[in-house]
């Protein structure tokens, strides 16, 4: 059971602003990518990587590390920014996102990028892989945990529901899933494209311990994680309500920002907003990656 102090909370918020700036930076440099979902998922990943997961950048393949599968692989700029910040690979590599010969592929590649546990990108596949990792942890009698982050559009894929049955059937209580519930997919609002309601009831009826949290409130997210860890006999689904494009006013809740890079003006405006936002000015430091939180 972990409680976030006011100091930690402030550090997490500042870290997230720095990382959101990295995301905007990377996608601007790359000239393509997916800002909306990267910004919506950020706080989920920040809490996991800076407060919850047992990992070690210096020894990134050690056997009993916790695993995270970013099933919504297109949000990888968020993951890459975090992995670089934690020292899995040089921060300078972020500028090479989506470029020829870079390790930072447009979607996560576990064979190229230290710290990436599963290649994803073709939606719907990550939960099955996470289940396999959770089964492996059980076979190993290990206390390591497996996390998986799904997109809300993504769960229209049938394989997700095959895997949902699997996790419940095998009682994978070492598995915690997050749904980045930002309500948007490429062609519009999820409820209009193909509704998933009743969403909470669906996961519950599939045998999951299902929670709802605010995906941009670290204390709410932490509470979800605490409850997931203490729950035995079933996997936990944490439905995290988020805002697509969170942190950049003109991207928030705008479907057009699912998969495009900002113009120069938009880029500068986005960085200004992130600097002046909740993280406050000058937290970023001159080198940009020396926050107190690692």
């Amino acid at each position: 059971m972990q409680v976030l102090t006011d100091t930690t909370l402030e550090e997490l918020k500042q870290k997230a602003v720095q990382l959101r700036r990295d995301v905007v930076d990377m996608i601007y440099e790359a000239g393509s990518g997916h800002p909306g979902g990267s910004l919506s998922v950020m706080d989920i990943l920040v809490l996991l990587y800076y407060r919850v997961m047992r990992i070690d950048a210096a020894n990134c393949r050690y056997h009993d590390r916790d695993r995270l599968v970013l099933s919504k692989g297109h949000a990888c700029p968020a993951l890459y920014a975090i992995l670089a910040d934690k020292g899995f690979f040089p921060v300078a590599e972020l500028k090479r996102l989506r470029k020829i010969d870079s390790i930072l592929q447009g979607h996560p590649d576990m064979r190229k990028i230290p710290g990436v546990e599963m290649s994803t990108g073709s939606l719907g596949q990550g939960l099955s892989a996470a289940n396999g990792m959770a089964l492996a942890a059980r076979l190993d009698n290990s206390t390591r945990r497996v996390f998986v982050v799904l997109g809300d559009g993504e769960i229209q894929e049938g394989q997700i529901w095959e895997a949902a049955m699997t996790a419940a059937h095998f009682r994978l209580d070492n598995l915690t899933a997050f749904l980045d519930f930002n309500g948007l997919q490429i062609d519009g609002w999820v409820r209009d494209v193909k509704s998933q309601e009743p969403l909470v009831e669906k996961w519950k009826s599939f045998g999951w311990h299902t929670l709802e949290v605010d995906g941009h409130d670290y204390r709410s997210l932490m509470e979800g994680v605490n409850r997931a860890f203490s729950y035995k006999g079933a996997p936990t689904m944490i439905i995290a309500r988020t805002v697509k494009g969170k942190g950049v006013s003109f991207m928030e809740n705008q479907v057009d920002w699912h998969g495009k890079s900002p113009s120069k003006d938009e880029y500068e405006k986005a960085l200004r907003e992130l600097r002046d936002g909740e993280g406050g000015e000058n937290f970023h430091g001159t080198d940009g990656h020396q926050g107190s939180l690692r």
């Binding site: 695993r67 599963m118 596949q125 990550g126 939960l127 990792m133 089964l135 095959e162 895997a163 049955m165």
Partner: peptide, 22 residues
Amino acid sequence: FNMGIAEADMMGTAAGLAASGY
């Protein structure tokens, strides 16, 4: 592991097991 009539999920689960050394 009997994965039921869910071949796509079976392949993904196998991948996760392999990623963990099985």
